[in-house]
Amino acid sequence: MRDLLRANQRETIAFSVLVALLVSYLATHPAGPTTYVMTIWANQCLILALAAIAQFFAVIVRGIDLSVGAIMALTNCIASYLVIGTGAEMAFGIIVVLAAGVGCGVLNGLLVVYGRIQPIVVTLATASVFVGLALLLRPTPGGQIDYDLADALTLDVLGVPTALVITAAVIGLIWVPLRRTGLGLGLYAVGSSEQAAFQSGMPVAKIRLASFALGGLFAGLAGLYFSLVTTTGDAGIGPNFTLNSIAAVVLGGVALRGGVGTLTGAIAGAFILKTIGALMFFSGLPPLAQPFVEGLILAAAIAIGGADVLRVKNKLEVFGR
């Protein structure tokens, strides 16, 4: 057990912080730890967590994705047209929404791998295109999502918020198996050293494409879940999610230089970020001071994460970071 904790030091820290924050949130919330309070909290967290997972797949192969929010906006707008009606219609709608997410991710991947442009620049440009497409669909916020489906996925199952069940399913059914496949290993290999991965015969181009496709898929899922929570389509949701997803993966112990960190860490980071925001709301601070304190906590959390740099014995070690 101790070895396990030590091996996953970054995640352990992130999880302890999360538990501490959650306890103080539930303690300060006037209604106390009811299912209702937990459900609202978990829904908000899951949206950002899915966005953070999308970001994780870009960051783990030493990239960055500035189009996460834009893909969410686009898929949100598509969902606001298609995820309504009979069961078959909704199923078709969901498939189209997720396919759009994957499509956006693959486009990013093709431009990065075959266009040989840096991911940060590619996604900066494609984000503009995706937001444009979203605006074509929904110049003003509107549309509707099937309420029954939304209720089924955003309320609770036997007192446990559905969002938490989904989170557990993503970790248990997607991440844990994926981590054991060749692709899972390849993601870390390419992120640690693209050249070494290439020279050991790994299909680097395919792995990068796959990681962008997975990123697009999760950005699409984030957009879909956002639609279920808000039940409308809005093309303007992007920028906040993009920046917060980057902050979330860093808080969760994923290194921006690639190859370090786990998907669970990214999820924990997203939950931490949202819990800080929720905590602010009930903390009794004057509302106008809240954005500042929120920024301060974010900066402090990141600075503490980087503080072990002050302990290194050989100054040259810091350049590897």
């Binding site: 960055i64 980057i246 001071a289 954005p291 500042f292 920024g295 900066a299």
Partner: peptide, 24 residues
């Protein structure tokens, strides 16, 4: 340079603090 935090994240945090001060 000193804390070795990736600039993308650190400047983002600084930006949100400045936003907070401005709102305050």
């Amino acid at each position: 340079a000193i804390l070795r935090i990736p600039s993308m994240v650190w400047t983002l945090a600084v930006n949100s603090m400045l936003l907070g001060v401005a709102v305050l």
